[in-house]
Amino acid sequence: MREELQSIDWLKLFDLEPDVGMTVIEDNGQIIHFNQAALKLFGVEDDGLANRNLNDVFSEEYVQERMTWVRDVLDNNRPLRATHIYCGRMLVSSFYPHRHEQRNFAIVLTRLDGILPDGDIKDTQSQYIDLGPLSVLSPRELEVLVLLGQGNSVPEVSRLLFRSPRTIERHKTEIGHKLGVSSIAQLTRLVAQAGLRPEHLPLQRFNAVPRPHNCTPDLLPVNSDAPSSPA
């Protein structure tokens, strides 16, 4: 590192960063550090991560998969980048190895945009999907939502799914009732916000955080013109 950069407090800089979540996880799952952006991304309270282990906050599937990534990073001493849908939004987390004396850590930087930056880094994808507010949809409704959101018309979706246009239109109406949206444009924007693609449909559904939490409150409705969801 250049000499003039050595005095920079990088940890403090990330603590002030509003859009990139930072967490430091020890190889036993203990959460050593986090910033406010991480709390917002994962929808937990200010004290929800303090002095906690991943097992205290997240579901068993979530913890097992993330600790697999942490061990991969530490065993191979190289970074890893993982994409995962958390609470109905695509997140990208980059894991970096860090060692201090006899202790091993992974520094995790998480972004919401879902865009994979260029770079020589190993990529992986979660085998689970946390749909958050979209979990009210049935598997077929989610499939229809994604296909419509990818720019397909109702007749095109009916051909892709070997169902009648009337059936697809009925699914579209039910999706609108459940999510508080109505037009194709709103559904398309919703799918884009969530980062959903057809390859996500076979992934196993789960709740990353077992207990209720503030999960991406800005996901629904997609705009102020959308009708309210029925009670």
Rank of each mutant, 00 (worst) to 15 (best):
L5S: 02
Q6N: 09
S7V: 08
S7Y: 04
D9W: 13
D9G: 06
L11N: 07
K12G: 13
L13S: 03
L13E: 11
F14C: 05
P18W: 02
D19V: 05
V24P: 02
V24K: 01
Q30C: 08
I31D: 08
I32K: 12
A38M: 12
F42T: 05
G48N: 11
N53C: 11
L54V: 04
N55T: 07
V57K: 03
E60V: 09
Q64P: 00
E65L: 00
R66M: 10
R71K: 13
R71N: 14
R71V: 04
D75H: 15
N76Y: 12
N77W: 09
R78F: 01
P79A: 06
L80M: 05
I85N: 04
I85T: 08
C87F: 07
G88S: 10
L91D: 04
S93K: 02
Y96T: 04
H98Y: 15
H98W: 09
E101N: 15
F105S: 13
F105L: 12
A106F: 06
L109D: 03
L109Y: 07
L109F: 15
L116M: 10
G119F: 11
D120V: 07
D123P: 12
T124H: 00
Q125K: 01
S126N: 06
S126K: 00
I129F: 05
D130N: 02
L131G: 11
V136A: 13
V136S: 14
R140V: 10
E143R: 14
V144T: 15
V144W: 08
V144F: 09
Q150Y: 03
S153P: 03
S158K: 00
R159E: 15
F162Y: 14
S164V: 07
E169W: 05
E169V: 00
R170Y: 13
K172P: 01
T173F: 13
E174P: 08
E174C: 08
G176M: 12
G176P: 11
H177S: 12
K178E: 11
L179F: 07
V181T: 15
Q186H: 11
Q186M: 13
R189I: 08
A192T: 14
R197C: 00
R197A: 12
P198S: 01
P198D: 05
P198E: 05
H200G: 04
L201D: 09
Q204E: 14
R205L: 09
N207I: 13
P210C: 08
P210M: 06
P212W: 02
H213P: 03
N214K: 07
T216R: 04
L219N: 09
L220Y: 00
V222Q: 06
N223R: 04
P230V: 10
A231I: 09
